[in-house]
Design a protein around this nucleic acid. Structure first.
Lengths: 346, 346
DNA sequence: TCCCGGTTCTGAAACGTTTCATGGCAGAAT
DNA sequence: ATTCTGCCATGAAACGTTTCAGAACCGGGA
């Protein structure tokens, strides 16, 4: 098998063997080696074997920079998510990667952590890499960076955001999700509802809030109040406990599960009974929601499918070439009721 | 500002502007443009301004393949973790990325998901990319792929694994972690201890188990029994419930928190009282451990610091050049006791 | 006037691939 | 014999940078 070639084991070659070293060793031209690599059928059985042997003996590894430079294709796409620490996004990433792999595309994964500055750096990096497409859960709304990218020839697919006719997009109806949570709480007899959210500059938060408010309004109950957290993290949720309790709500809807779990811990430590005193509903239905101190009701999103679809849209856009009409795929979320909102289920 | 240059907005340039287009527009040679990009001080104030203006007007973006090809440096490292869905690894990745950024290195992140096949593909990809180093939480022990990589000139740092004198490494003393858990349970008066683990082919699981067994043995108690799960996931933990209960343990130690949380859910559904009937201890102390149905005792690892140190070791290895002696940095884990093992704390 | 050192800038070579027009060769058809 | 057709292999050009030896210029000292 592969054993580093002639020298003693552990030898550190100054420059790794290139295609011409392989060609020399196999007694063929570089063009032939390249053909073995890229169009194996066009080369005779015997030469192919000889070349493959040489590759093996020299430990040749293709230099993808050179390959990309000449061929003009990178076979690579970039994925930029909002928070790699959130299982929702890792599920999404896995689905996306699976679909991409089926089209021989590698995925470069980044987390903007909600920072516009980080996002800009990461997009820059991906553009310099000449990735064939960027799939992104953008921070903020304006997306002028993304339009620029697209104008320069890099396809952009919006994930969990609207394409606004400028990009393909795939998302889940956050408005509906918020309203599912709202009407569930209303039907459970709750009236003083608090919404724990990040800034409304985050579209997901805004839409979920809008849906919630609409559902509550249509029932005639008091409009929900809000507690704003700086980030959608567990510790932020925990630290918001006092502010939430100050509003004396009988139900709390959180913009995602992570913040809900943090808040739940705070509520229990403060002696509040969940759901008796306060019902709690989260968003995303991450796996840890089910194992929470009080199993958490949550609005489930099809994360993996979101990712797969995003990749599929991108591939479709490649195929369509010039005349491509952008698609906007919208999934529907689904409410999962558990003990935290009183709806104890199997 | 950047506005796509002369054409109408939304125009799709067939080939993006290169360095020679910039040179032409600024009325200088390509060498000068390159100097502006890479050694700005060696070019006069006025020319620099002119070149930067041209770059802006044409929307020039450096083609990193060409740059890497010629310069021979990629300014990029690869990180391959075992499970991107485990918050332990995302914390690790964040720390690593922060340190790498301070040395102007970008990080390419992959998850092997415990599959040797995936790991091999990902290493191959990174090698083709000519990354300057690979940081990896390897699946399995043999690591011949990694030695090959190193022999071909790519530095390899083992993360959460031993370097065996062939690589630098950074890890946490898993044996100690297991024994912390073991003696804690013994002191809490438990005697029938079950260890829920993945295959012992996974070194972390093996070492934690060894530590656990040693601690228990030195107390004279019965040796722990084992339940093996196929993967360290929540659902695997949940599905192992019956097998665990069949052993009638009064304490369970899990190889990580995710599996512990899954099992916890199963135990509670089955009517077991935690910690009264069964004490439970996990591993990693991920954030969700604290918000669990019964707050989970766990062995905490300094994930972020592990990542930072790994990156620092790699950078150190670059600096040392030829005569480099591999380091093996070992951190100590720390037991965090919560309600699940009876040690209710603040 | 000539030469010198320093500062800017130039232009061509090189990096490791892929691609493509070309050519040789073997066998089939004429 | 000759021509045609496919199949394989060749070798040079091209991809977009960086690097480097040296040209051009400028002011100052001998």
């Amino acid at each position: 098998m592969v054993n580093g070639g002639s020298g003693p084991p552990g030898e550190r070659r100054s420059r790794p063997a290139g295609i011409k070293a392989v060609a020399a060793r196999a007694g063929v031209s570089v063009g032939t080696v390249s053909n073995v690599l890229n169009r194996p059928t066009q080369v005779s059985e015997s030469t192919r074997a000889r070349v493959l042997a040489a590759i093996d003996e020299l430990g040749f590894v293709r230099h993808s920079s050179a390959s990309q430079l000449r061929a003009g294709r990178s076979h690579t796409v970039g994925l930029v998510v909002l928070d790699i620490g959130n299982p929702f996004f890792t599920d999404l990433a896995r689905g996306l990667e699976a679909e991409a792999a089926e089209h021989a595309l590698s995925v470069l994964l980044f987390s903007s952590d909600g920072s516009a500055e980080r996002q800009r750096r990461q997009l820059r990096f991906l553009e310099e890499q000449r990735v064939e497409g960027v799939l992104i859960t953008p921070v903020g709304d304006e997306g002028s960076d993304l339009v620029r990218l697209q104008d320069r020839g890099t396809r952009v697919v919006m994930v969990d955001a609207v394409g606004a006719g400028r990009h393909c997009s795939v998302r889940v109806d956050d408005n509906l999700g918020g309203s599912l949570a709202g009407s569930h709480l209303i039907h459970a007899g709750r009236r003083r509802i608090t919404y724990v959210t990040a800034s409304y500059a985050v579209r997901q938060c805004r839409d979920r809030g809008t849906g919630l408010t609409a559902a509550i309004a249509s029932s005639g109950a008091r409009a929900p109040r809000q507690v704003e957290v700086p980030t959608l993290t567990g510790s932020a949720g925990y630290e918001a406990t006092a502010r939430v309790l100050a509003q004396r709500p009988d139900a709390v809807f959180c913009a995602n599960d992570i913040v809900a779990l943090g808040l739940l811990r705070g509520l229990l430590e403060a002696g509040a009974r969940v759901p008796d005193d306060i019902a709690l509903v989260g968003y995303d239905d991450i796996e840890f929601a089910a194992t929470a101190a009080v199993p958490l009701s949550s609005v489930r999103q099809p994360a993996g499918q979101l990712g797969r679809t995003a990749a599929a849209l991108l591939v479709g856009e490649f195929a369509d070439g010039g005349s491509h009409v952008h698609e906007d795929v919208v999934f529907s979320p689904e409410l999962v009721t558990r003990a935290s909102s009183g709806g104890v289920m199997a």
